[in-house]
């Protein structure tokens, strides 16, 4: 599964995207953010305020309860500030 990061989440993690093989226990977006926070110090810093971070699956907004089974691409990013 491809995981992509944007804005300050990307800067804190240190990469634009990464391919991860996830343990079967990770079922939802919320499970995934909790898992990512345990990978290393950079990920821990990026996901320290997990409630602030937004997620998209296959380029559509989702919330923490959304299952990740159908995901080809999951993205994490801060609240948006366009316009």
């Amino acid at each position: 599964m491809i995981i992509r990061y944007f804005a300050w989440v990307r800067e804190k993690v240190g990469v634009d995207e990464e391919q991860l093989v996830l343990p079967d226990s990770i079922q939802t977006v919320g499970d995934l953010t909790a898992y990512l926070a345990t990978i290393d110090d950079n990920h821990a810093a990026a996901f320290a305020e997990a409630d602030t971070i937004r997620a998209a699956i296959n380029q559509e907004h989702v919330d923490a309860d959304t299952p990740i089974a159908e995901a080809q691409e999951i993205a994490f990013f801060p609240p948006m500030t366009g316009g």
Binding site: F6, A7, W8, A56, H61, A75, F77, P78, P79, M80, T81, G82, G83
Partner: peptide, 27 residues
Amino acid sequence: MDFLKTRAPFWKKEHLKSGQDNGWVDA
């Protein structure tokens, strides 16, 4: 415009005249 500001995936970072990076704009 209301939905674009809060739902379209864009993020603004400020660069200052002093040469400093002022970081990401908060929502």
